[in-house]
Design a protein around this nucleic acid. Structure first.
Lengths: 405, 405
DNA sequence: TTCAGTTTGTTTGTATAAAAAACAAACATA
DNA sequence: TATGTTTGTTTTTTATACAAACAAACTGAA
């Protein structure tokens, strides 16, 4: 560790973090918040401004609110960086671009033909990304791309499996690096993890809380954030909440295991249960929701069963993680609003009396959550301490260096 | 952050870590391993030696194995610090003392009358700790005590619940601080967490792997270590694996929930299942183990059922955490050796084909695991970076300061 | 034995960045 | 207009790591 540069790096990152959180902040406030002197804060700001990361903010909506000389404010230079998130969904690709200040600059959807092989999908994705990035690349410094996939990705950037895409052992990073050589950093991430990160990144709790994210669609995807970090497990398979086996058989035969959580509460399970209770073939979840809202008896009975197992699942999750919050997302999650009471009652029934019950909320992000999360993850990397540089051999992490470079 | 001291602190800690891992190491090797210059390594070693943390190792079993001038070796000064772990079990208190080099200096058991209230138990514990510490306090610098409890402890050091002790909302830290004013640091920890930490601390994996620990007795305690950190959750309730509800009813009525994991695989569940299959009243788990070893039909049938649900539980845990290793401990864990194949087959049956199955092993620590873990946790704190000092306001964490002071 | 080659640990000088202190600038209020 | 307060900059000091040079201690070959 080269001694001066390491502390300088830590302090630069901390300054960027403060400016990002406040949007607009004076040097004196930076100094107070970080416990450094004003002179050091000025020096750091000057250096970062020279590199184009920070800029003076001369907007006059001061309301300086107090005695003494008003501060001169700085903010992140939005044009310094552009982070691209691209989500590969079933039937479509979503591309989102975030600037250095954290604003979404562009967000677009592209249709994706099914039954394409992985290489063809990734060629489509590259073209979509280029279409979004090219008009922006003149005014923004494009720093990186994070692709999100509904599947398991290991540390070396290989998609081990993505059942809904029919992928197995796809070296996604290798392929994309060849397809997009101009992109300084390319990363890949599980879509549920990215969705969770997006939800967590804006209103994150200072103490580094534990939160669980459940994405309900045909399958059930899950992600856990603890201490600001995504739980990945040894090979990247962690968070497969939908595959927990809760009984000998569920409400429906699924692609996954008999009796799995998603065979009880996934989309197809609800529709099967609806038929079981005498309802017709609702066909899709929207129609089912309408039936339930209208008070259809079979729909209410199916929803009741759904609430029973979702409640039990939430109780298991509470016993294991004790999260402060569980965020539900995806098309099936909207059922939650119709039977929130029922679910929480079932959760409590499966917990010891004094066990804390997490707050359960619906995601505010739509279906673009994973793409936004991918972009957010790159944004976060840019204003995070490079652990390699500080704690290890002193050489910077190559990817981090390209992100900043 | 005072700039020089932060880097100095980081480097001191890294030196201590290297010396701890190697036991005996030359300055040049420290420099190589940390990527610092030999002069810096010498300076750091000199400072730490002056403070009494390190000492020259002049033992002549050199086998210097190579050309050039042999190095001068240093090692941790065992007498610089003594860390005490004290476990409150059902019917007994275990006290373990670890020196700064990581060796167990003393390990003793004290009987504990049941039906004492919390204050009386803690008075007993204080006396036991004093009995262990007093003969050592002349030659060791006593740095702290970590008490472990079979219950949930929140961040402020209050035992929220400890069913086997009959405790509820006991301010254990406050009481112990009054009882042991001479102890510089007092901490409290859940016994399963401490057990997990003890197992993980010695042969810890560099990359910060994910490991799950399950302690099987009357109840089932669990703990998860990810990235070297214990998962605690928002209020400290995380890791209650035994309370996962897997069915409508288990094999036995337990103190906890019907259908919970421990109502299927806890000690009483096995014995109940043994009776269910026509076996007599085995009475305790030792006898049951003997019957199973002898091939008693009822015992084998009960064991088969046990393996079924343990396998399912391990599969749930694998789906959620994807651990590289699951460590089983406690009196009931020895059943594992008799049906390891059966359990792993059931685990695989409840997982997708390509899902990695963790290595499942028996704990090598006996019943003293929690006490050793408590001591280990203090030892670890002493050779860890004080995040407050480096990343926050620059003032050191008060507890860390007392530990080092 | 002697000398070259190698590795270790120390010494000395240098560079970097943060803190401390002093100061000028910019405001509010009496 | 004077006073007090807060901000941002400048100057000096200090702590620490690095770089380079060097002496010490060992091996092995001539």
């Amino acid at each position: 560790m080269s001694m001066p540069s390491a502390v300088r790096h830590i302090n630069e990152v901390r300054v960027l973090d403060v400016v990002f959180r406040h949007g607009r902040v004076s040097r004196a406030n930076i100094a107070r918040e970080l416990g450094i002197t004003r002179s050091t804060a000025s020096s750091l700001v000057a250096g970062l401004a020279e590199d184009g990361l920070l800029m003076e903010d001369t907007s006059e909506d001061d309301k300086s609110a107090g005695t003494g000389r008003p501060g001169t404010f700085v903010r992140l230079n939005p044009h310094h960086a552009l982070f691209v998130g691209a989500d590969i969904g079933v039937g479509r690709i979503t591309v989102a671009a975030m600037d250095f200040a954290g604003s979404i600059v562009s967000e677009r959807h592209f249709p994706l033909a099914s039954h394409l092989d992985a290489k063809a999908v990734l060629r489509n994705l590259s073209a979509s990304v280029r279409e979004v990035v090219e008009p922006l690349s003149g005014s923004y410094g494009v720093k990186g791309l994070c692709v999100t996939v509904p599947g398991v990705i290991d540390k070396s950037g290989i998609v081990l499996r993505a059942p809904f895409l029919g992928w197995r052992n796809v070296p996604i990073l290798e392929i994309l690096t060849a397809l997009l050589p101009e992109m300084p950093v390319i990363a890949a991430e599980n879509d549920a993890n990215a969705f969770a990160f997006a939800e967590n990144y804006r209103n994150r709790h200072p103490g580094g809380d534990t939160e669980v994210y459940i994405f309900l669609d045909a399958g059930i995807g899950g992600a856990i954030i603890s201490g600001g970090q995504i739980l990945r497990g040894h090979d990247g398979y962690a968070g497969e909440l939908g595959h927990m086996v809760l009984g000998d058989r569920g409400f429906v035969e699924t692609a996954t295991l008999p009796g799995s959580f998603e065979s009880f509460i996934g989309r197809d399970a609800i529709l099967a249960r609806y038929r079981h209770h005498g309802g017709g073939a609702a066909g899709d979840i929207e129609k089912f929701l309408d039936m339930a809202r209208e008070g259809d008896a079979a729909a209410l009975a199916a929803m009741h069963d759904w609430a029973f197992y979702l409640g039990r699942g939430l109780a298991i999750i509470s016993n294991i993680f004790n999260p402060s919050r569980v965020v539900l997302g995806g098309p099936v999650a909207r059922l939650f609003q119709l039977c929130a009471e029922d679910i929480l009652r079932n959760t409590r029934r499966n917990l010891l009396d004094d066990h804390p019950v997490p707050e359960v909320v619906l995601s505010t992000l739509g279906l673009d959550g994973p793409a936004l999360g991918g972009a957010s993850m790159l944004h976060h990397d840019m204003i995070s301490v490079d652990e390699d540089l500080v704690f290890r051999k002193g050489q910077p992490n190559p990817a981090a260096a390209r992100l900043r470079g």
